[in-house]
Computed example of a mutant assay.
Amino acid sequence: MTSWISGWTARRATGPGLIAGLAAFFLWPFFASFPSLAFYPFVFSLALASFCGLSILVLTVVDLRNRRRGRQVRPIRAFDVIFGLVLALPSTLELSALLR
């Protein structure tokens, strides 16, 4: 039996990361109005989006380092890097500000 981490890929992190990022985006105004009610769902969605974004970045760097790919894969890797940054940066910054 393989471990669950061996099956974790950038493609598999994209879906949950997108959903968590959108959830955090839509919870943000609710959190601003009712911080005591929306704190835990907002923090959970930020943490999941941050984890997915960072894992996409790490997996992309590992893939680029270990495998030399042709020109056809470059746009996909560029998308992975941009999408990973879009998920990781805002969610990690907001999460660190909330948990101070």
Rank of each mutant, 00 (worst) to 15 (best):
R74F: 01
L93E: 13
G53Q: 03
F34N: 05
A10Q: 08
I82D: 07
A10S: 13
E94D: 12
V81F: 02
I76P: 04
R100H: 15
A13D: 10
T60C: 00
L22Q: 04
A24T: 15
F42W: 06
V61Q: 06
L89H: 04
A47F: 12
F83C: 03
R68V: 06
L87Y: 12
R65H: 10
E94I: 15
W8P: 09
I19H: 03
P35W: 02
C52N: 11
L64D: 02
L64C: 11
F34S: 10
R74C: 00
T2Y: 12
W28S: 12
L98E: 14
G21Q: 07
F25V: 10
V61C: 11
G70F: 00
V58F: 04
F79C: 08
V58P: 01
R11S: 06
I82H: 08
S45W: 00
A23Y: 01
V73Q: 01
I76M: 10
T14R: 12
S50G: 11
F26K: 06
Q72W: 01
A20L: 15
F26E: 04
L87A: 05
L57Q: 02
V81T: 02
A47Y: 04
L48N: 06
V81D: 00
S45N: 07
N66T: 12
I19A: 11
R74D: 00
V73L: 06
A78H: 05
T92S: 12
R100I: 15
L93F: 14
L46M: 13
L27C: 02
I76F: 08
S45R: 07
V81N: 05
F42I: 08
L93G: 15
L95P: 15
A10M: 11
T14I: 14
G21E: 09
P90I: 04
